[in-house]
Design a protein around this nucleic acid. Structure first.
Lengths: 204, 204
DNA sequence: CGGAGTGCTGTACAAATGTACAAACAGCAC
DNA sequence: GTGCTGTTTGTACATTTGTACAGCACTCCG
């Protein structure tokens, strides 16, 4: 991965002031935030420009069209995902490895709730287009599954498709569904009542 | 319930030709379909008018603003939900009753996938506004829970909030998350491979 | 017959949006 | 200095959007 990617990935998780980032990076981060909150159709290029403290023209200059901006945001997320998985240790039994990798992903997502919101939206808004961020994450996950299999670090008693699916559901399912729980508790729960935990899995 | 409501509710589940419906009903149904597919911001009043074979002016004439149209769609769904629950039998043990009611809801939702898509979108798009369709469904569910409790037909070992939450998650959770599974299987699965079943529940 | 109400059409309009483009500006090699 | 490359601004434009409004056709009641 290029140094550019690491720099931008770090820009999300570390606590750099917005002044330390390039305008290009600030635009992309603003797009991620606003896309996650209001959806892609719901956020204008002007809103992104304002949030990034630049003008509309600069957004078009760096990313061309709105679609180009979306691809940049997608790439940021996919790279962050890949970096997270690459930095996860690969030692121990197959089960231990899965637990460690799931934990690394969960920790990364917990540190970047904006990405979770963005992915949740992508799941609905995206019409299943290839090149979509979810497709790219699915491809990434499938590659990881195959790699672990070849190293003998993953069970092979299920199909690759089913194993990929299980992994993604394990990592995303609970997070994608959380708003439903939060809304109910917000509506009826007494203040201070903590939302119960969701369990999401695929029936084997 | 007024006869109007029952007529409109039937309009979804039975197989009446579009010519048999009033323009007002056709507009509302078109709005439901397009809102479900493209989101509320993503569908113009003109697209709804075209789908319903009317002009833009008539949409405004019947429903005033786009917000009014959304409320009409929400009301249709809530009424359909209420009708479904009212027609479910209330006999047997507490567990049997829950199973029967969940089955009735599942059957209704399976017959109206458009409503599922609409609700899935509402979960994200809606900013938790009261009056939102999910809020109204939550209120409806909570009322049902309390009613069943007073009749001694529901267990009282958990809080009403938790019981309401469990019910909604049981009825919606799997459906809301299904697109994730479908997309993975579409992307990697061999043709004809059927998506495995999801399991969603709240940790007790 | 007449008129009143209602469903319905067509059009008009201001606001917002994505995109294109010309010009100003900064840093840097030569 | 001069030229060059990349950044940044400001503005302009066509399109789409939600909403408002004036008028036509029809039905029903007196």
């Amino acid at each position: 991965m290029s140094t550019e990617k690491e720099r931008t990935a770090d820009a999300l998780s570390t606590s750099w002031g917005p002044d330390d980032l390039t305008s290009k990076a600030r635009i992309r981060n603003a797009a991620l935030s606003l896309f996650a909150r209001d959806g892609q159709d719901g956020t204008s290029l002007r809103a992104i420009a304002t949030e990034a403290h630049v003008t509309v023209g600069l957004v078009a200059h760096h990313y061309g069209t709105k679609e180009g901006l979306r691809e940049a945001v997608d790439t940021l997320i996919v790279d962050l995902f890949a970096d997270t998985l690459r930095s996860a240790p690969m030692s121990g039994t197959a089960r231990e490895i899965v637990t460690l990798r799931d934990g690394a992903v969960a920790q990364m997502l917990a540190a970047n709730p904006t990405i979770v919101d963005y992915l949740r939206r992508s799941l609905l808004t995206g019409q299943g287009q290839t090149g979509d961020v979810l497709s790219r994450l699915a491809v990434l996950t499938a590659e990881q599954v195959k790699a672990l299999r070849e190293m003998g670090l993953a069970s092979t008693d299920r199909s690759v498709t089913e194993q990929t699916l299980t992994t993604l559901v394990r990592q995303f399912g609970r997070l994608l569904l959380q708003p439903l729980v939060n809304r109910i508790v917000d509506e009826f729960g007494e203040p201070g009542e903590h939302p119960p935990e969701l369990v999401v899995s695929v029936k084997s």
